[in-house]
Computed example of a mutant assay.
Amino acid sequence: MKKIVLSLFIFFPVLLFAQEGRTILPQDLYRVENDSVTIDLDEVIVLKNRNFNDTKEKKYYYWYYKKVQKAYPYAVLASDKINELNEEIAKLPNNRKRRKFIRKKQEFFENEFADELKTLTRTEGRILIKLIHRQTGVSFYDLIKDYRSDWKAFWYNSSAKFFKLNLKSEYHPESDALDFIIEDILNRSFSNGSLERREAKIPIDYFQLNENWASLNFYDEINAYIEKYK
C-alpha cells in the first residue's frame, strides 16, 4: 500500500468558535488628522462549535480529524507542483525533452518525500487521493493518464485495488458523507489556523453543505468506514 501512496509523488511527480456566520470581512478604521483610513484585513470565517451526540462520536471525529490534517499538506504540495511543472513543461520544445524533464523530477521527489510518504496509513492515503481531486479538479487516475499513459494509470489502479485503494476516487462532499466530514474538518482547520486555506478547484459551498448534512451522525459514518476497510 505504501508503494501505491508513494506513487502520488514518485511515479507521478507532476502531480472554538463563538458564533456561526457566513463570511465576515472585518475592516479597521483609523483616524489620522481628521482623515479616515480604511484597511482591509484578511477574510475571517466564524463557525460555531461542532456538537456531538456523545463522547464516542467526538472521539471518532477527532480520529478522522488527525488523518485529514496529515494528508492535506501533501495534496496542496501536489497541486502546487503540478502548476509549476506545467509551466516548465510548456517551455520545452518536444516530447523527448518533456519526458526527460519528468524523469528528473521523479528522482527529486523520490529523494525528497519518500520517507515522509511511507508514514501515511491506508486511511490517510484514501483521504489524500480524494484531496488531490479537490485541489486539482482531476482524479489521480486521470492525472497519471494525462502525464504518463493509459497503461500506467490502469496498472497503478489495479495494484492499488489490492490495498483497497481506488485511484479513480473523486471528491463529492455534496453526496458522500465522509467527503463532507473531510470538508468540515478542513474548514474548521482553516478557521483555527492549523491548516492554510487553499481554494478548491471544484465548486464547494461549505455552509450549504453544513445545512444539508445537519443530521449527520459522525460516529455512524466513520465506524462504517472502519468496518468496511478493516
Rank of each mutant, 00 (worst) to 15 (best):
residue 141 Y to L: 02
residue 76 V to C: 13
residue 134 R to G: 00
residue 43 E to C: 02
residue 199 E to P: 01
residue 183 E to R: 06
residue 210 N to R: 15
residue 81 K to C: 03
residue 40 D to W: 09
residue 116 E to I: 12
residue 130 K to N: 13
residue 195 L to I: 10
residue 9 F to C: 07
residue 214 A to C: 04
residue 8 L to N: 07
residue 90 A to T: 03
residue 190 F to H: 11
residue 189 S to P: 04
residue 115 D to A: 14
residue 91 K to E: 11
residue 70 K to L: 10
residue 103 R to W: 10
residue 22 R to N: 13
residue 35 D to P: 02
residue 96 R to N: 08
residue 16 L to Q: 13
residue 95 N to C: 04
residue 50 R to I: 15
residue 196 E to G: 03
residue 186 L to V: 12
residue 134 R to W: 00
residue 59 K to G: 03
residue 207 F to M: 12
residue 10 I to N: 10
residue 187 N to D: 10
residue 97 K to S: 09
residue 162 F to D: 08
residue 115 D to Y: 09
residue 184 D to Y: 03
residue 174 E to G: 09
residue 63 W to L: 12
residue 108 F to A: 08
residue 58 K to Y: 13
residue 85 L to M: 15
residue 106 Q to Y: 01
residue 84 E to H: 08
residue 201 K to F: 09
residue 94 N to G: 06
residue 130 K to D: 04
residue 4 I to G: 01
residue 225 Y to P: 06
residue 171 Y to H: 00
residue 170 E to C: 11
residue 216 L to R: 01
residue 124 E to S: 02
residue 100 K to N: 10
residue 125 G to Y: 00
residue 74 Y to R: 12
residue 85 L to Y: 14
residue 30 Y to V: 15
residue 67 K to R: 15
residue 21 G to R: 09
residue 64 Y to T: 10
residue 121 T to I: 04
residue 170 E to R: 15
residue 95 N to H: 06
residue 207 F to Y: 10
residue 121 T to N: 03
residue 83 N to E: 14
residue 66 K to T: 15
residue 134 R to C: 02
residue 179 D to F: 02
residue 136 T to W: 01
residue 176 D to V: 09
residue 91 K to D: 08
residue 13 P to L: 06
residue 117 L to P: 00
residue 176 D to W: 01
residue 17 F to S: 14
residue 85 L to C: 03
residue 72 Y to V: 06
residue 154 F to I: 07
residue 17 F to K: 14
residue 17 F to R: 12
residue 14 V to Y: 12
residue 112 E to C: 06
residue 121 T to G: 02
residue 150 D to S: 11
residue 178 L to K: 07
residue 168 K to Y: 09
residue 109 F to D: 01
residue 32 V to P: 01
residue 20 E to Q: 14
residue 65 Y to W: 15
residue 42 D to H: 07
residue 85 L to G: 07
residue 96 R to W: 10
residue 147 Y to Q: 05
residue 186 L to P: 09
residue 184 D to G: 05
residue 100 K to M: 11
residue 128 L to N: 01
residue 68 V to C: 11
residue 228 K to N: 08
residue 28 D to T: 13
residue 172 H to Q: 12
residue 100 K to C: 04
residue 195 L to K: 03
residue 39 I to A: 05
residue 132 I to W: 00
residue 175 S to N: 14
residue 105 K to Q: 13
residue 153 A to S: 00
residue 49 N to P: 12
residue 206 Y to H: 06
residue 18 A to F: 13
residue 127 I to K: 10
residue 133 H to D: 03
residue 53 N to T: 05
residue 214 A to F: 11
residue 92 L to T: 03
residue 64 Y to I: 14
residue 115 D to K: 13
residue 95 N to T: 11
residue 18 A to K: 11
residue 190 F to V: 00
residue 156 Y to E: 13
residue 17 F to A: 12
residue 173 P to F: 03
residue 145 K to G: 01
residue 68 V to T: 14
residue 135 Q to A: 11
residue 211 E to P: 04
residue 58 K to Q: 14
residue 32 V to G: 04
residue 224 A to F: 07
residue 132 I to Q: 02
residue 65 Y to R: 12
residue 115 D to V: 10
residue 157 N to E: 02
residue 39 I to C: 02
residue 230 K to C: 05
residue 76 V to R: 07
residue 198 R to Y: 08
residue 111 N to T: 09
residue 110 E to T: 06
residue 191 S to R: 07
residue 114 A to P: 00
residue 94 N to W: 07
residue 90 A to P: 01
residue 138 V to C: 05
residue 113 F to A: 06
residue 163 F to S: 12
residue 70 K to Y: 10
residue 53 N to L: 11
residue 217 N to I: 02
residue 58 K to E: 15
residue 161 K to E: 09
